[in-house]
Structure formats: structure tokens, C-alpha cells
Write a protein that binds this DNA or RNA. Structure first.
Length: 485
RNA sequence: GGCGACAUAGCCAAGUGGUAAGGCAGAGGUCUGCAAAACCUCCAUUCUCCGGUUCAAAUCCGGAUGUCGCCUCCA
């Protein structure tokens, strides 16, 4: 497969360094607040990459860390009068709650910063020994950016230009304004760990280097994270790890694009963000996950509830086709009538296109387009009395179900029992519209009675009443069902 | 100021050299007691604009305009 590599600024054929083994490290959350949609996107994107690589037969080791000590956590802890450790623990738990709902799989290794302080101290010491870092009288340790030749290669920065724009904080003891902290001395009242440089805590960039090195042989095959992490976070990780080991840190750098609100970056500082909970109060988790996959992972994604409603229609249509296939397959006898080869060939094509799309830099949006081709094909066959009752039809519907299951396993969607999901979706939409399902059922029962007596005037009047409530009725051979219009 | 990304129909969106996927909305039709769903048909001679390279460009190059991001914590 091909992947866009930020380091090369183009798509490249993905080849793991070690045969069939793939090591993938993704920067996880800083645990100080509930996750927002941006976290959801990043998590879902790399979850799909994880699933896709495994699906392709690679032996994947997926590492996703938790930053459980840093300024934001300490600040939050002080605000609410808890310990930093308690805050981190709390929001790691909340992270799991959200991710489980979004069907984001657990990583193989989920290391926490505070459990690797010793590794980080050791790495810092090695960098000092090698002349890449220095300690100050106040007990801070800085990485000497100019001692690392490749600095700026990931983000395309020029070190001299960075220098000219660098902010100089008169309080610190950096030899060069570009130098960044590996170890920060503890201020009074802050959590700290003992180190050769006194009481303090690790700098943010350090943990990813230390933990990557610990849990995977370098270079990593894939290192991922949000686009904003490429500078300075990932640049600094490269400097630390490559200065330490002399080996490349990661071969493929994968960055996901941002979630935007009205074409503007969603961020805490702008205050225009939605948490995952905000969304899931109104929409099903699968709707959100599907929505996130309808755009290519590197493109900016504009979030709105209107867009989510549109995504909801899409996933409803896909599940409806799956439900239809189930209905057809529930029949017991199949006719020997002919089944056109072109239809089988069409499905062959769709399967091929789907794989090609996913292999081309994980094009989930393109792949979903092909899923709709399968949906339409299913509808066309189910529509034709001869086809749907034929043995070829049975083979076809079975195959569609298998395809949907395979595609869904990689995308992390389409894994529910269709009618169950559709009912849940309907009730979810009803709840949003303030519709009471029990009241609807009562009206449907009345209407059924009227229809039984061929009292179509009354029947239609009831349907009009329902329509006024934004409910539409469907008469099926199994009886009337309803949905939110 | 430096670096970078993006610009495709009413809306969302895929497409990185071979003649514009898909979804939503819309129009017509089949089906239906009437509907709904589903299915069928239609819906961009054209990809922000101007030049250039090429037999061939939405795709490559140069320029313009616009939008956004990074350079400070951030997925």
C-alpha cells in the first residue's frame, strides 16, 4: 500500500523495515479533560490504519501513549483541588469510555509517561553525555538544537529562520532560544521525581522518544499524530532519538488533518470545540465514526450537526441494504433461474476498487463510494423477482454480506445486526426530534384497524397526523413501520 | 515576516498525466388503495483565474486571487 509520508512530502510505497512486522507509534492524549472531536478523528484514523495493516496480514505492534503529567494536568489539578495523578487517571478512564463507544481498539502497548520516568532520565543522561544536552544551575536540562544536524527536516523549517522568529523568555537559562526542555525542575508544590539534576519532571517531547525506544526497535515503521504535532513535537522527538541512537527515528510519518468549525480550526483556545460527549448525546457513535471516514484523513474536516445528519442518511442507506440482503437470505428455497455474469463481474470490480482505494493512502472516502456501489447493486438485484429468488441471488447476497463484514471490520463500522441498528438509529432520531415512540405505536395500531376495515380516509388521516409530527409510515408485508422524516 | 496546505456541481466529497467516483438535495418514472422505502433515468463539455509544458492537464510548472494551518499548549 501507499502512504503519504510527511518526511518525504509525498505518497510512498509502504515497506516495513522488518519483513512482516510493523511498529506503529501514535501520540496519544494528554489526560486533563474530556476528548473533543479532534481527538475522535485522530483516534479513528489511526485505528483504521491499525485495522487495515492487520487486515493486510502484517504483524502490527501498535503503541499509543498517555501523557499523564504536564502543565495542563497540574493546572487542572490545582483548579479542582485534586492531585495531578488523580486527574490523569480520571481522564484516561473517560478516554476509554469514549473510545469504546467509537469502537476504537486498544493499542497493544499503552505506556504512561509517569511509569517511564527512569527511562527518560536515562535518555536525558545519555544526551548530556553525548554533548546534545546540558543542565542549568536551576536544575533544568535542555536539548541543544544546534548540535543536531537534521533539525527541521520533518516540518521543512530552516534553523536560522526559526532562530530569528524565536521567542526569548528572559527567565530561562537556555544557551539558545531554540533549545527545548528535556527535564524541568519542580516549582514549589508541583509533583516531582528525583533526578541527577534535582527534583523535577520530564519535558513533553521526551516521553515519546523514550517509550518508542523501549517498546520497539528503531526505526519505527510508522509514527503518527495530529498535523499540529509535526512541529515542534515530532521534530523534537526526532532530534532526541536520532541524537541518542544515531539511527533514523521513524520511516513513515503520518499526520491527520484537523477538524474545523465553519472552516476554522477547532481548538480550546478559540473555545469553538465540541466534546465527543456533546455529539454522542445526540447522535449514535457509529454515525460519528462514519462521518469522520467520509473525508480523507489528511483533509481538513468541517464539522457541523447538519453534516452529521447527512452522514446519518448515508449510513442508514447502507444498513438498509444489509437488512434487505438478510431478508432475502432468510428464504429457504432458491430457483435455478439464470443469474447474469455481468452482475457478478460488477461485484468483482467493486471489491477490487475498494482494496485499491484503501491501499492508496487509506482513502476511506473513496472506499465508501464503492460501498455505495455495492448498496445500489444489492437494491437492483433485490428488486428483480427472478434474480432475488435464484441460486445466483443467494450466492450474491451471501457474498455481499461477507464483503460488508470485511469492509466493516477494517473501517470499524457496519458491524451491527442491521435491523437492530436501524431501530436504534430511528429511536435516536426520534429522541432528537422529541417524538415519543409509544404514542406513535398507538397511532399505528389505530391505523392498522382502520386499514383492516378498508377505512382509507381514516387511515390517511392518521398518516397525515403522523406526518405533521414528522413521522412517516411505511407499509410492508410484515406490517407498518415508521421512521422520522 | 518565515514555512506549508487547500480551491472540483446547490451542498458535502473522491480523483496527482489519458478525457470528471460517490453521497445529500432536486426533476421525471416504476411499484403502491394513496404513500414511504427501494429501483430506473436525468442533474459539472468541466475542475478559482491567467499563462506555460505535453499528442493529452482537475492532475505537472510559473504567476495571481482566496481560504486555512504551523511558527506558543493543542489531535
Amino acid at each position: 500500500m501507499r502512504l503519504y509520508n510527511t518526511l518525504a512530502r509525498k505518497k510512498q510505497e509502504f515497506t516495513p523495515a522488518n519483513g512482516n512486522d510493523v511498529n506503529m507509534y501514535v501520540c496519544g492524549i494528554t489526560a486533563y479533560d474530556l476528548c473533543h472531536i479532534g481527538h475522535a478523528r485522530s483516534s479513528v484514523v489511526f485505528d483504521v490504519l491499525f485495522r487495515l495493516l492487520r487486515h493486510k496480514g502484517y504483524n502490527v505492534t501498535f503503541i499509543r501513549n498517555f501523557t499523564d503529567i504536564d502543565d495542563k494536568i497540574i493546572n487542572r489539578a490545582n483548579e479542582v483541588g485534586k492531585s495531578a495523578a488523580d486527574i490523569a487517571k480520571q481522564f484516561i478512564n473517560e478516554f476509554y469510555v469514549d473510545m469504546d463507544r467509537l469502537k476504537v481498539l486498544r493499542a497493544d502497548v499503552e505506556p504512561k509517561c509517569t511509569e517511564h520516568i527512569g527511562d527518560m532520565i536515562a535518555l536525558t543522561q545519555r544526551l548530556i553525555d553525548k554533548g546534545h544536552a546540558y543542565s542549568t544551575t536551576s536544575g533544568d536540562v535542555y536539548f541543544k538544537v544546534r548540535s543536531f544536524e537534521g533539525y527541521g527536516k520533518l516540518s521543512g523549517r530552516n534553523i536560522d529562520e526559526l532562530e530569528s522568529g524565536a521567542r526569548v523568555d528572559p527567565g530561562d537559562e537556555k544557551l539558545d532560544p531554540l533549545d527545548f526542555a528535556l527535564w524541568k525542575s519542580a516549582k514549589p508544590g508541583e509533583p516531582f521525581w528525583e533526578s541527577p539534576w534535582g527534583q523535577g519532571r520530564p519535558g513533553w517531547h521526551l516521553e515519546c522518544s523514550a517509550m518508542s525506544e523501549k517498546y520497539a526497535p528503531l526505526p519505527l515503521d510508522i509514527h503518527g499524530g495530529g498535523q499540529d504535532l509535526s512541529f515542534p513535537h515530532h521534530e523534537n522527538e526526532i532530534a532526541q532519538s536520532e541524537a541518542d541512537t544515531g539511527k533514523p527515528f521513524a520511516n513513515y510519518w503520518v499526520h491527520n488533518g484537523f477538524v474545523q468549525i465553519n472552516s476554522e480550526k477547532m481548538s480550546k483556545s478559540l473555545g469553538n470545540f465540541f466534546t465527543i460527549r456533546d455529539i454522542l448525546d445526540k447522535f449514535l457513535p457509529e454515525t460519528l465514526r462514519y462521518f469522520l471516514l467520509t473525508m480523507h484523513y489528511r483533509s481538513p474536516l468541517d464539522f457541523s450537526f447538519e453534516a452529521l445528519e447527512e452522514a446519518e442518511k448515508g449510513i442508514k442507506r447502507i444498513y438498509s441494504a444489509m437488512a434487505q440482503a438478510d431478508v432475502e437470505l432468510s428464504k429457504s428455497s432458491w430457483k435455478k433461474s439464470p443469474f447474469p455474469e455481468e452482475l457478478t463481474a460488477e461485484l468483482d470490480q467493486i471489491e477490487t476498487h475498494w482494496v485499491e482505494a484503501m491501499d492508496d493512502d487509506m482513502n476511506t472516502a473513496g472506499a465508501l463510494g464503492h460501498v455505495f456501489s455495492a448498496v445500489r447493486l444489492t437494491g437492483r438485484i433485490a428488486e428483480d423477482k427472478n434474480l432475488r429468488k435464484s441460486e445466483g441471488g443467494q450466492v450474491f447476497f451471501t457474498r455481499i454480506k461477507t464483503d460488508m463484514a470485511n469492509w466493516g471490520a477494517v473501517l470499524g463500522i457496519f458491524e451491527r445486526e442491521p435491523t437492530e441498528f436501524l431501530t436504534e438509529l430511528r429511536d435516536n432520531r426520534a429522541a432528537r426530534a422529541g417524538i415519543d415512540p409509544a404514542r406513535i405505536q398507538q397511532l399505528l395500531d389505530d391505523r392498522k384497524e382502520a386499514r383492516k376495515n378498508k377505512d382509507f380516509d381514516k387511515s390517511d388521516a392518521i398518516r397525515d397526523e403522523l406526518a405533521a409530527m414528522n413521522v412517516e409510515v411505511k407499509d410492508t408485508p410484515q406490517g407498518a413501520t415508521w421512521d422520522v422524516a
